Amino acid sequence: MKREIVAQGAEIYALIPQRPPIVMVDKFYGITGNSSYSGLTVTPDNIFCQNGKLQETGIVEFVAQSAAARIGYINSQKKELVLLGFIGSVDKMKIYYLPPIDAELFAEITVIQEVADITLIEACVKVTDCVVATCRMKIFLKKDGKETK
């Protein structure tokens, strides 16, 4: 499925609090209903690459930053600041393979539940039509004034 890019490159910095070399989202495709969509091209200089492949930690960080891009996009539409978020838990993680350098990752993040500062999401990461990984993740948002610009 072809999607229109809403933000890419340096524009991503307006959606997420992370900065190089930890940025793991380079495209944001927007939100439809309870789902948001983001992408990442795996590059040789990615700090989570080893032996020519994106490692498990990189996949988890891609999911977390994809969820962060979702809330960052929502906040940017409201003219609010980007909030810091923290991974509370990762459940039901299944990694089917480690994507190679130059792979184009695509994440679909679906919100299952939001209660106060906690969001439960379900993620599916693909390269083309091949599922790379699936999981559920709890994310805690820090709403005490420590936002980023």
Rank of each mutant, 00 (worst) to 15 (best):
M1C: 05
K2T: 14
K2M: 12
E4F: 10
I5M: 09
V6Y: 04
V6I: 06
A7S: 11
A7G: 04
Q8F: 12
A10W: 03
A10R: 05
A10C: 12
E11L: 03
I12W: 05
Y13V: 04
A14D: 10
L15M: 04
I16Y: 00
I16R: 00
P17M: 01
P20H: 06
I22Q: 13
M24L: 07
M24H: 03
M24D: 04
K27C: 13
F28E: 08
F28G: 08
S35Y: 00
S36P: 01
S36I: 03
Y37I: 10
S38W: 01
S38G: 09
L40R: 02
T41P: 06
T41Q: 08
V42A: 14
V42Y: 02
T43D: 13
T43M: 09
P44A: 15
N46F: 00
N46M: 07
I47G: 11
I47V: 14
I47P: 12
F48E: 01
F48P: 05
C49P: 03
C49T: 14
C49R: 01
Q50H: 14
Q50R: 03
N51I: 08
N51C: 14
N51L: 11
G52C: 13
G52F: 11
G52V: 04
Q55M: 09
E56P: 13
T57G: 15
V60R: 03
V60N: 02
V60L: 10
E61N: 14
V63P: 00
A64N: 05
Q65A: 05
Q65M: 08
Q65R: 06
A67M: 08
A67R: 00
A67N: 02
A68W: 00
A69V: 06
G72T: 11
Y73G: 07
I74N: 12
S76L: 06
Q77S: 12
K79I: 10
E80A: 12
L81K: 11
L83F: 12
L84D: 09
L84G: 12
G85C: 06
I87N: 10
G88T: 13
D91I: 06
D91R: 12
K92F: 07
K94A: 15
I95M: 10
Y96K: 11
Y97N: 14
Y97R: 14
L98N: 14
L98H: 08
P99L: 04
P99W: 01
P99V: 08
I101Y: 02
D102V: 15
A103S: 13
E104L: 14
L105S: 01
F106Y: 09
F106H: 04
A107L: 06
A107M: 02
E108M: 10
T110I: 04
E114V: 09
E114D: 15
E114C: 09
D117C: 13
D117W: 02
I118N: 07
T119S: 15
T119C: 15
C124Y: 01
V125N: 07
V125Q: 02
V127M: 11
C130D: 14
V132R: 00
A133K: 00
T134G: 03
R136W: 01
M137E: 03
K138Q: 10
K138N: 14
I139C: 08
I139L: 13
I139N: 02
F140W: 06
K146R: 12
K149E: 09
K149R: 09
